[in-house]
């Protein structure tokens, strides 16, 4: 079975996370679950990958973390919300991906 190489997807983990945060603030497991379901289970993000993306993006000012209670069970969690810089970065990454896709597509057989 073909699976996604982590080298290729690495540059776009941030994009996926930011896309999900555009809608509403969220926390670790919820994001990993959404990535799994939106990709129709073709991509499962590793916990360490996700956490490393969070810390990196927080350092770069793309997301902010805050502590809040989970509505469903009242457990304290670390939530992340997207910042203005994060939105701008997301737009940049979308443009970058469109270009990348366009270029790589030209070299793919059967299209």
């Amino acid at each position: 079975m073909i699976s996604i190489s982590s080298d290729v997807i690495r540059g776009y983990n941030d994009t996926m996370i930011l896309y999900l945060l555009l809608e509403k603030p969220s926390y670790g497991y919820e994001i990993s679950k959404q990535i799994k379901s939106l990709s129709e289970e073709k991509y499962v993000i590793k916990e360490t990958t996700l956490y490393s993306a969070f810390t990196r993006m927080e350092k770069n000012g793309y997301v902010e973390s805050f502590s809040d209670e989970d509505m469903s069970n009242g457990k304290k969690r670390t939530y992340y919300r997207i910042t203005e810089a994060g939105r701008a970065y997301y737009q940049e990454k979308c443009a970058e991906w469109n270009l990348t896709k366009e270029v790589v597509e030209k070299f793919i057989e059967g299209n």
Binding site: G28, Y29, K33, E47, T48, Y51, T55, T78
Partner: peptide, 20 residues
Amino acid sequence: REVQKAQYELGQMMEDKYNE
């Protein structure tokens, strides 16, 4: 502090996934 936080957060994610 960073390492403790990482351990805690990763633990949370694992626990959530496990429970689900």
